[in-house]
Amino acid sequence: MNTTTIPQSEFEERIKRFQANIRKENLDACLVHATESDMAHVRYLSEYWPTFETGAVFVPAEGEPVLLVGPESDLYASHRSFFKNIEKLIEYRESAEPDAPGMSFITYKDLIAKYVPQGIKKLGIVGWAITSLPVYMALKEQLPGVELVKADMTLWPLRFVKSDNELACMRKAFEISELAVEAILNEIKPGMTEFQVIGIAQREIYKHGGEYEGHSLYCFCGESTNNAISRPTHNKIVENEVIQLNIGARVSGYSSSVGLPFSIGPLPERKRRLVEFGLEAHKKTIELLRAGKPAGTVVNEYEAWVKEQGFGQYLLYGPCHSIGMMEVERPWMESTSEYLLEENMTFQVDTFFYDKDFGLRWENGAIVKEGGAELMSSKFMKYTEI
């Protein structure tokens, strides 16, 4: 069972490093946002994970941080987070927007007066893309003299390179994902629905200590495998067709994903060849990863190699995106990427090819090292017919 966690001391060190970045950017404070589905920034700082409602962490450049929750979450937050400062704001209620009669809330104006009595002039917003309109409108109305600044990059870089504790959580998450995939391969049968297959994975994730799925779990069969992003359906599993799995467990906030195509019985040669080439390309990407290498160079070398092999027409994107508290998070690895790969950055090697009537994805987690990459999952790095 999972006993892998992030210690409180590491959370406290994260806040200190974040505050140093806030001061470096000449901000007076940052307001960090999360939703139930994209909880990463707030959980990274506080261990709090909103349920139904949204949430935030208010971090002044100097002083103690404050966890901000909605009407129903104060007791839950006090049990989950180590923060001693927790405040309720109506802006973090759920999207049904209950009036919450009889409850009392503070405002952003009250928050500043209580925790930064000297006042603020520049407030950084972290989680810009998921900050809700009610929050934004309340900030504009209650803090009319305060400049709101997009400040995601005060926090994101702290998450790029993983600590030993983070890596331990991720390795455990991948271990559980492999157990779930193995159970599927042992139990899947023609006639099952995609939903029933995902049920096997969910059973195994919780059985082995995962706290939740790491992402929306994939099982597709047939034509729908050419969807780059999708969800399972009542579609039935059939023989001699590509079946795509992407299975991920979450451990102490950290996600994983193991992706592979397989079949029940042999595939037609055209489909089998693309599946097998996808695995070759997957391994090629892993060969290209090493600390000190420009990220954009990895992408350009990968894409050039795919085209040289004669498979460029099947390429949608690739080959990597970062993974950590979210299955897809910054930094993306794209042809325009200028950053250097650093030791203990973590990426999903994400190899997706598609044709008009099917597609495939090989996916595994990798830790960047000086001499190459350490795979967090390697058990299913082969094409399987069952």
Rank of each mutant, 00 (worst) to 15 (best):
K122Y: 11
E342N: 09
V126N: 00
L288I: 09
V149H: 03
I286F: 06
L245Y: 02
N300V: 02
A183L: 04
Y115I: 08
V57P: 01
S230T: 15
P319K: 10
Y354P: 00
G102W: 06
V275W: 03
I237V: 11
G371N: 15
T5E: 12
P101E: 13
P7M: 07
Q118K: 14
L375C: 12
L288H: 06
M137I: 14
E141S: 11
L123N: 06
S46D: 12
A228M: 13
A249W: 00
A29D: 02
K207L: 14
D357V: 10
L111A: 06
T5V: 13
P134H: 03
V298C: 04
N364E: 09
E10W: 10
V197R: 06
E241R: 13
T107P: 11
P266V: 02
E94P: 00
G259Q: 10
L340P: 01
Y354V: 09
R17T: 08
E269G: 03
G310I: 08
L27V: 07
I125Q: 03
A20V: 00
I247A: 02
G102N: 13
A366D: 08
M325Y: 11
L139F: 12
L45W: 04
K283W: 00
V251M: 06
E12R: 12
A56Q: 01
E204T: 04
E141F: 07
G199Y: 00
L111N: 03
E308A: 15
F11Q: 05
Y108R: 05
R171H: 10
P261I: 08
I112K: 08
